[in-house]
């Protein structure tokens, strides 16, 4: 079983890697400027925010949860950042730090409702999804936009640093952090245990509530970081920032081989999932296809990834039923 599962996961990521490479070569042959360095950087710039959200969505889904509010929180944090800078006259640095704190508080709200009242993450984050976006609209009256940020701040989103897009080093740092967290620390181990069996985790002495709270707070902080980068890239903050990003993040995670039922999944799989989606949407533009095709294909990809994730589960269930039915009875009555 172990070998079966492991080879399966390995296969998933190799297949995905092959898909990404194929995409690359295909679009390179179709679009004239697709393979250029400028365009590569363009892809990176455009996928950093969704990539950040997908990175923090990975541990959440590993624990068997979900967070629908990250896109809305991105919007709320973006306009609060703008508000702090323009109306409260904070320096971009101070505003940024405050925004990260706001993200932590918002993630903490999700975490509290989920762990303290044991409410399903789905409905809690659906509520905060509406709440955060609504607050963003209420604060900006739906029309206010924040622009004319100083160049020193826009550097973060639009210039190059160390020969790559300036936001790329931040993304790489976060990716390394989340990868280490999930794959190399006891926290990541706990997330998986909780995803497989929350009750079993309790009996092993793992602080289930604190670990779950941790992943939602982390998601809040990183959503705020994504909001700052988003603002710097576009040079403006609007209430509709990040609309629908939660879907792209979830898609990337599930596409990357993480089971929606929790326990199984990797961060590098998620990164490949992000790459697959980013290259697809950029490449389709270069192939002179309308932007919407990319969105549609993303949704279809998610459905396909879900179906493929459920097939081994169905097999395992069949096998388990065949294996356990007889022996369990035997031991009870022996």
């Amino acid at each position: 079983m172990k070998n079966f599962l492991r080879s399966n996961i390995a296969k998933h990521e190799t297949v995905l890697l092959a898909v990404v490479i194929t995409e690359w070569f295909y679009f390179n042959s179709v679009g004239a400027h697709f393979g250029s360095l400028d365009n590569t950087f363009d892809i990176v710039r455009h996928s950093v925010e969704i990539g950040l959200l997908a990175l923090v969505m990975t541990p959440i889904i590993l624990t068997g949860g979900i967070d629908l509010s990250v896109g809305s929180l991105l919007g709320l944090c973006a306009i609060l950042f703008g508000k702090l800078w323009r109306d409260a006259h904070f320096s971009p640095m101070a505003a940024g730090i405050c925004t990260l704190g706001i993200g932590a508080v918002a993630g903490g709200l999700n975490a509290t409702l989920i762990t303290w009242l044991r409410l399903p993450p789905l409905i809690v984050t659906l509520g905060t999804y509406s709440l955060f976006r609504g607050l963003a609209e209420a604060i900006t009256h739906g029309v206010d936009t924040f622009t004319k940020f100083p160049d020193s701040f826009l550097f973060l989103g639009q210039e190059r640093f160390l020969g790559m897009p300036a936001q790329a080093p931040i993304f790489i740092l976060v990716a390394i952090f989340v990868w280490l967290l999930v794959h190399r620390t006891t926290f990541g181990r706990s997330f998986r245990v909780i995803g497989f069996s929350p009750e079993g985790a309790r009996y092993a002495g793992i602080p289930v509530e604190r670990r779950i709270a941790m992943v939602y707070v982390l998601a809040g902080i990183i959503s705020a970081l994504a909001a700052i980068i988003y603002t710097a890239r576009l040079g403006q903050a609007k209430a509709d920032a990040g609309t629908g990003y939660e879907l792209y993040a979830i898609t990337a995670v599930v596409l990357g081989g993480t089971s929606i039922f929790g326990g199984i999944g990797t961060v590098h799989g998620t990164l490949l999932g992000v790459a697959a989606i980013a290259i697809l949407s950029n490449g389709l533009v270069h192939a002179r296809q309308p932007r919407e095709v990319a969105g549609m294909l993303t949704g279809l990809l998610l459905i396909l990834a879900l179906c493929s994730s459920v097939v081994p589960k169905l097999f395992a269930r069949l096998r388990a039923r065949r294996q356990t039915a007889a022996p369990i009875q035997a031991v009870k009555t022996s």
Partner: peptide
């Protein structure tokens, strides 16, 4: 409750002494 079936023997052994 006793073990996490989907995880390795090693991971189960160390689960309570992280």
């Amino acid at each position: 409750h006793g073990v996490i079936l989907e995880m390795s023997v090693a991971a189960n052994t160390t689960m309570s002494i992280h």
